[in-house]
Each structure stands twice: as C-alpha cells, then as structure tokens.
C-alpha cells in the first residue's frame, strides 16, 4: 500500500459516503443519475466476486463490503424511498444502461487476463467503471443547477481516478512484476472522461462562482 493508493481509496470512499449522506440527510437525490448509480452497483457486484474466496487483507475485505453496501443503499434510496424517489430527475436521466453494458461485456469476453468467469467479470467491471459516469455527466449538462454536494461528488470521483494513476506509476517502478494493461488503459479512459468536468469545476472554484456547465 502506497500513499497514492490510500489517497485514491479514501477519495473514492468519501465520494460514495458524501452522496449517501446527502441523500439520507436531505432526503433528495436531485441532480444524481440513477443510471450511473445502478451501473456502479453492477461494477462492484461483478468485481468483488472474489470477496469470500480470495483473501487479500482485512482492509480490502472491509472496503469491498463498504462499497457494495453503500452503492446498493444509494440505488435502494433512489428507487424505493418514498421521499427520495420523488426528487429524482427521471425525465432528464435518459441514458440507456444497455448501450454501455453490452459493449463492455463483449469487450470483456475478448479482452481478459484469463478466460474464466471471474476474470471475464473482473475485466467487465473495469470497462464498465470507465464509462459508468457518462449518464451522470449527461445529467449534469442538462440540469441547470448543480448543487455543491453533487459537484463535490464528481470531484471526489475524479480525484480517486487521478490518485490511482499515480499509484500505478509508483507500483510500476517499485514492483518488478506489476503490469496490468487492462486496468491501466480502462483507468486512463475513465480519468479522461472527467477532464472536461474538472476544467469547469476548477474555473468555478477559482472565480468563486456557482458551477455551471456549458450547453
């Protein structure tokens, strides 16, 4: 465990907890894409198939449980909680899961480290994670008002991506056998998707104005 990996995990954890806390406290999910949240729940469910079979560390197991629990809780709140679901921007959140899930599944069947169920699912989860933010970014573009918490949520997710890239660079130079092309390329694609959002986020922060994305 290096400092970049830890910082990446912590910003990832904070992003999910900020969102869950926001929904739980103000009983609103305005501006949050249910499509993205369902895709993340699917990402964690398919990636952590090894949770009870391969023990890495107590830290890993606990983090996996938190990510699974929090992502499914968010989906539950948005779909089932009678107050929260009323605030969901259903008409604006029109991205189809299918268009992201199917190509990722096909790619995972072709590009994986080993053709086993667990490895194909692991590759699928990486590809899907890379693009799962797209429905959220589309919703941010459409919604005129981006509240601070939604902005912070996407910012923390982007920070997590950036720290993971530093982690891979660090590990590449310190661990001789550490080469994971699939992880790196899908991770890089995912980070690039945030670059545009980051540009506007930093501008609004620098000029001390409310975040507003161009049409």
């Amino acid at each position: 465990m290096n400092i970049f990996r830890l910082a990446g995990d912590m910003t990832h954890l904070m992003s999910v907890l900020v969102l869950l806390l926001k929904i739980h406290t103000i009983k609103s999910c305005a501006g949050i894409s249910l499509k993205t949240q369902e895709l993340y729940a699917l990402v964690f469910a398919t990636r952590y198939l090894d949770i009870f079979t391969d023990f890495i560390s107590v830290y890993n197991t606990i983090m996996k449980l938190i990510f699974l629990g929090s992502s499914f809780s968010i989906v539950w709140y948005m779909r089932r909680h009678k107050l929260v679901r009323r605030s969901y921007d259903k008409e604006q959140d029109t991205f189809r899961h299918f268009f992201l899930v199917l190509p990722c599944l096909l790619l995972a069947l072709v590009m994986n480290e080993k053709f086993t169920f667990k490895e194909v699912m692991w590759a699928f989860s990486l590809y899907l994670e890379a693009v799962a933010i797209l429905p959220q970014l589309v919703l941010l573009q459409r919604t005129k008002n981006i509240d601070n918490l939604t902005g912070q949520y996407v910012f923390l997710l982007g920070a997590y991506r950036a720290f993971y890239i530093f982690n891979w660079i660090y590990r590449y130079f310190t661990e001789p056998h550490y080469v994971h092309w699939i992880t790196w390329i899908s991770g890089l694609v995912q980070t690039l998707l945030y670059a545009d959002f980051f540009y506007y986020y930093f501008n609004s922060w620098k000029n001390n104005v409310k975040l507003h994305l161009p049409a």
């Binding site: 391969d54 890993n60 990510f67 992880t183």
Partner: peptide
Amino acid sequence: SPGIIEHDEL
C-alpha cells in the same frame, strides 16, 4: 501461486 491472478486493488 502460479495461474492465479491477484487483484489486490479495489
């Protein structure tokens, strides 16, 4: 062990 790919990241 050989043949098992270890995914130690989240």
